[in-house]
Each structure stands twice: as C-alpha cells, then as structure tokens.
Design a protein around this nucleic acid. Structure first.
Length: 277
DNA sequence: CACGACTCCTGCTGGC
DNA sequence: TGCCAGCAGGAGTCGT
C-alpha cells in the first residue's frame, strides 16, 4: 500500500493522538513479519512517552523515552500494512500483529502480506540513522538536495532504464511503483530511457515532477487523514487520480495517445509512448 | 559496481 | 462452483 505520501499522511495522522502520550502497554500477536518483532518491546515500551514521530523514507520512527530507557521504534508498512486507532475491546482480526496500548485507545498494526517490520533501535533519536536498514538509504526527495543537478549526477553511471533507477531507495527514498510511473509521465520522460542519457535540463523537469507528484499526493491524503487512521473497516489508504497507473489501454490525459503497460525489473510500468520520450 | 532475478507472504481476480 | 495462474503499492540478497 504505502509509498512516501501514504506514510507521511499516516505520520501526520498519528501526531495529534500519539505525540507526547504515554504508552501503557504493548501487544505482540505475531512473532514474524519481515523480521521477528523483538519480544523485549514488552519490557521496553510500557511507561515510555512518545516524544516525536519522524519519517525516513518509508520508515516511521517513534522516539520513545522513560527512566532508564531511550530508543526509537522503527515501523515499516511493507506492501500491505496500516496503522489504525481502535477502541478498547475491538477484537483483533487475522492480520493484526502488533499494538500500542494508550490511555484511551489502541494503535493497531495490520499487515496481511507481512512484508512490513517492527524493530527497536536503542539510544538517542539520532542513533536510528545508523541502523543497518536506514544507514543505506538515499536522499529524501522533498528536501533541497534533491534537484535536477543532484539527480543528473546520481544517474550519470546508471546505464539501465530510468524507472527502476528512480525506485532505487539507495539513491532516492520513497518513490514506489505508482509514483515512479506518475512522475515520469508528468516530466514527459519515457520509463525506458537510459538514465545516463537524459539531459541535465530534463532532470530538472523530473526532479520537479517527483516533488509535485509526491506533494499532490500528500495534500490529497491530508484531506482524509481522519479516515486514514481512524476508519474501522475501509480501505485505510488513498490514491491520487492516476494519470497513467493502472490505465493500460485507456486514453492519455494529455495527448491523443493510449496508455501502455510494460514490465520492468519484475514490476508493472505504465506510460504514454506518444508523449513520453 | 550496476543490474535483474528471486525471495518473503496473503488475498484477490480472471480464465477455464 | 472449484481450481489454478498471475498479479499486487517493498526491498534485501544473490548471481552475473
């Protein structure tokens, strides 16, 4: 489910209910997501105050502290995870794996495909950056370093097609399969074009397109934050109006062409062959 | 080093 | 109606 915008919207939805609050208890229901959930969380977390909720790429970081304990809870939602506030007594469902017990409600993690993770990094907030999973991450696309010049340089040795490169989290974080296709459409660049054969000027277009696509999605999700973290049953996720994603065979929204679906590195790519070059 | 295939897991859809 | 293949928004690991 989540790419960067969904994770960011989730973070913002959690803030008012969780930041500054005390964790009363935890429930560990499933031993194994991508990794085993550390059992010591049952001793570490109760009594902790959540001092901040941060995001790095698609990872959510909950900075926790109490007497004798300081560390960050690391949560990744994988392909199918979501976090949701539920009332006490709400019975857990099949894929509810983990929850934080708060004074007045529960924060529950569901993840059917179990590609997500819940881990712990001891130490002050900055210590989490050195966690092996986070230390290898690339730049944040919504910060100032991510611009056309930076992208141009970062892609100068990448001879493969641009779309999988854009999704490489060791280079740039947060751009998943949907927003890679959408950003390339917005920039008018073919997903098949070799990354090192794209001009600096076009990389400026692409950087701007990535930022705009992610920002639009965050804005769209922001309007439904309460649904995103509070709804009981429903989707628990949102999607922007896609220009090309899952629109194989349909009319291009910009030209007279037809959107096509292809496969790159095992993932579906959607683009308009007529207006993307 | 860069790249693509493979891997983890469950659920849903479409074809027969 | 059942069964099976294929696919799904992530990302680490491994072989070339």
């Amino acid at each position: 489910m989540p790419e960067l915008p969904e994770v960011e919207v989730c973070r913002r939805g959690l803030l008012p209910e969780l930041e500054g609050r005390r964790i009363e208890g935890v429930v560990l229901r499933s031993p194994k997501l991508r990794y085993a959930i550390p059992p010591e969380l049952a001793e570490l977390l109760p009594g902790c105050v959540v001092r901040a909720i941060r995001r790095r790429g698609k990872y959510l970081l909950f900075d926790c502290r109490r007497d004798g304990v300081e560390g960050s809870l690391i949560v990744h939602l994988g392909m199918s995870g979501n976090l949701r506030f539920v009332r006490f007594g709400q019975p857990p469902e099949k894929h509810d794996h983990f929850e934080l017990v708060l004074a007045d409600q529960l924060l529950r993690l569901a993840d059917p495909r179990r590609f997500g993770l819940v881990l712990w990094q001891a130490g002050p907030p900055e210590a989490v950056e050195s966690h092996p999973l986070l230390a290898v991450l690339g730049v944040e696309p919504l910060t100032e370093v991510f611009d056309g010049d930076w992208l141009h340089a970062a892609c100068s040795k990448r001879g493969g097609p641009i779309k999988p490169v854009l999704m490489d989290s060791h280079m740039v974080v947060g751009i998943g399969n949907i927003y890679a296709s959408e950003s390339l459409f917005r920039a008018g660049i073919s997903p098949l074009r070799a990354a090192n054969r794209i001009s600096r000027a076009r990389y400026h277009e692409l950087a701007a397109a990535v930022r705009a696509t992610l920002a639009d999605a965050i804005a769209a999700g922001g309007s439904s934050i309460r649904d995103y973290v509070h709804s009981d049953g429903g989707a628990g996720c949102f999607q922007i109006q896609a220009a090309v994603y899952e629109r194989d065979g349909q009319a291009c929204r910009r030209c007279a062409g037809v959107v096509r679906q292809i496969r790159q590195s095992g993932r579906s790519t959607y683009y308009c062959p007529q207006c993307q070059h």
